[in-house]
């Protein structure tokens, strides 16, 4: 943000701290996270539940690193750097945990529309989801009750499979693809939209994203801002426009151009990214790195483009 007039500096000048990452000395500003320090060094640390516009919830645990003096591994996305810290990002323990996090997810979640990074990591870390057995018969997850538990089917791996939810004109929710990264809950809640239409319900393996009593979205608090879809890393939440083009086999990102412009509605000045395929707008997103929107939009900006299509 720019200013000419004297403003109280929101962030005091930050000191730097020196730490060691994979044997090399690294200087990082105080208050930054291990993840940021690693990325600044070009060290790839896989992440699933992390997004730069949301406060870290550190639940996926795929970004763990080894820190000397810490009994357990440490989530790099949320742990601030400290002077003298010795970090290992590629130790045997780290690789095992990352492999297992990816394997456990891949053994229980449909990752077919997850980003290409996820599939690369699964390969790279040698996850073997198939060793847990064939998928068990889908359970009624929406009505699973905490503590009411049946013994698992012998020889099959429980999954989060369940029917696709399509109860309105703009969203498709396919929770068989949900890795429970909490991003949608955060975006719908305190981190952005503050509508709180969805939350994590149930617990343990039965934990799931849900409205109250699994109400259909039109009966919920949802205001269709699409900010949950904007942050979903696996395609569990998808716009109908994209979902249907994919279903028809017509979704082709290589034919799409993304153009940044300003929303045609109110005077706030939200930046839009228009995804255009064959001269048609097929999806609207918002840049994470613009401080007006930080990736968020409202229902008009997100969906109100049809007037411009032939």
């Amino acid at each position: 943000m720019n200013t000419v007039a004297p403003a109280p500096a929101p962030v005091a000048l930050r000191r730097s701290v020196e730490l060691t990452v994979d044997g090399d000395p690294v200087i990082a500003p105080e208050g930054t996270t291990i993840l940021q320090a690693c990325r600044a060094r070009g060290i790839e640390v896989p992440t699933l539940c992390y997004l730069e516009t949301l406060a870290p919830v550190n639940v996926c645990r795929v970004c763990v690193v080894e820190v000397d003096g810490s009994r357990a591994l440490v989530p790099s996305c949320s742990r601030p750097v400290a002077a003298g810290m010795v970090v290992r990002t590629d130790s045997e323990r780290v690789r095992t945990s990352r492999r297992m996090v990816l394997e456990l997810l891949a053994s229980s979640v449909d990752l077919s529309t997850a980003g290409s990074d996820v599939h690369r990591w699964i390969e790279q870390y040698g996850a073997r989801p198939e060793r847990h057995g064939p998928a068990a018969r889908a359970a009624d997850r929406d009505h699973a009750h905490a503590g009411h538990h049946e013994a698992p089917a012998v020889g099959a791996a429980a999954t989060v499979a369940q029917p696709v939810k399509r109860d309105n004109d703009q969203y498709v929710r396919d929770y068989a693809k949900c890795i429970l990264c909490y991003k949608c809950v955060e975006a719908c809640g305190e981190e952005a939209q503050n509508t709180f239409a969805i939350a994590v319900a149930g617990r343990g393996f039965d934990a799931r994203i849900s409205t109250e009593f699994d109400a259909a979205l039109p009966d919920s608090a949802c205001v269709y801002c699409g900010n949950c879809i904007g942050v979903c890393p696996t395609g569990a939440l998808m716009f109908v426009s994209e979902h249907d083009l994919r279903a028809r086999g017509d979704w082709d990102e290589s034919r799409q151009e993304v153009t940044r412009t300003v929303c045609p509605y109110c005077g706030v000045g939200c930046n839009l990214e228009l995804h255009v395929q064959d001269n048609r707008i097929v999806k609207v997103t918002s840049p994470l790195d613009h401080d007006v929107t930080s990736g968020n939009l409202c229902v008009k900006g997100r969906f109100g483009f049809e007037f411009a299509q032939e």
Binding site: S107, R203, G204, F205, A207
Partner: peptide, 18 residues
Amino acid sequence: ESCGQCVPCRIGTQRQEE
């Protein structure tokens, strides 16, 4: 009794039981 928040425990306890 797993709260289900983190992947290792949420899915790990399920796989362990299996």
